[in-house]
């Protein structure tokens, strides 16, 4: 009954799940990108799109096991994604200051349709943050404690 030994003992290889995920996950991933990119014209946006993109990755981890997924998609890639997203959002905000605008005042950039592009970029940044953080939450919680980091926990 005990499932406490070994963090991956819950994984069961299933042909049905693997086949379903193999077929479904590209569509889920694409739909997530659509929601993210098309958030300005229809329902959705960075938060929702990011969550859907992340769930397509989590699906893969469920079907094929967490360790193989971690090898395929390294933690550092996910951290880079989160970093790039946050930098985009803050960068666009601060960049407006350089053009004599207020923080996040997209119109200050002076490009035609500047506000729209600003909003789109910010949405993509949010999407990258949300997708990255959700995937990394999943991967790290699945990995559990790093016991060999030495010392007793207080």
């Amino acid at each position: 009954m005990s499932a406490t030994d070994g963090s991956l003992s819950a994984y069961v290889e299933s042909t049905i799940i693997m086949t379903t995920v193999r077929v479904v996950s590209p569509f889920v991933f694409t739909f997530g990108l659509f929601v993210m990119f098309h958030g300005a014209e229809s329902a959705g946006g960075g938060f929702q799109g990011g969550a859907i993109v992340a769930s397509s990755i989590i699906m893969l981890a469920f079907a094929f096991g967490i360790e193989p997924t971690r090898e395929w998609l390294d933690d550092s890639v996910i951290r880079l994604l989160v970093g790039v997203g946050a930098t985009t959002f803050v960068g666009i905000g601060i960049g407006a200051l350089a053009f004599d605008g207020a923080f996040l005042e997209y119109a200050a950039y002076g490009i035609s349709h500047g506000v729209k592009y600003g909003i789109e970029l910010v949405e993509l940044g949010i999407g990258a943050i949300v997708a990255g953080v959700i995937v990394s939450l999943f991967m790290n919680l699945a990995g559990g404690f790093n016991h060999d980091s030495g010392g007793d926990d207080a």
Binding site: A40, A43, G44, I126
Partner: peptide, 27 residues
Amino acid sequence: TEVENVVTAILAAYRGFDTLGEAAVVL
């Protein structure tokens, strides 16, 4: 804003600073 979804316009433009806060919470 030239954005058709008013929700997105409010979240990312009018209330952009609040949304930055939300992103910081997720981070």
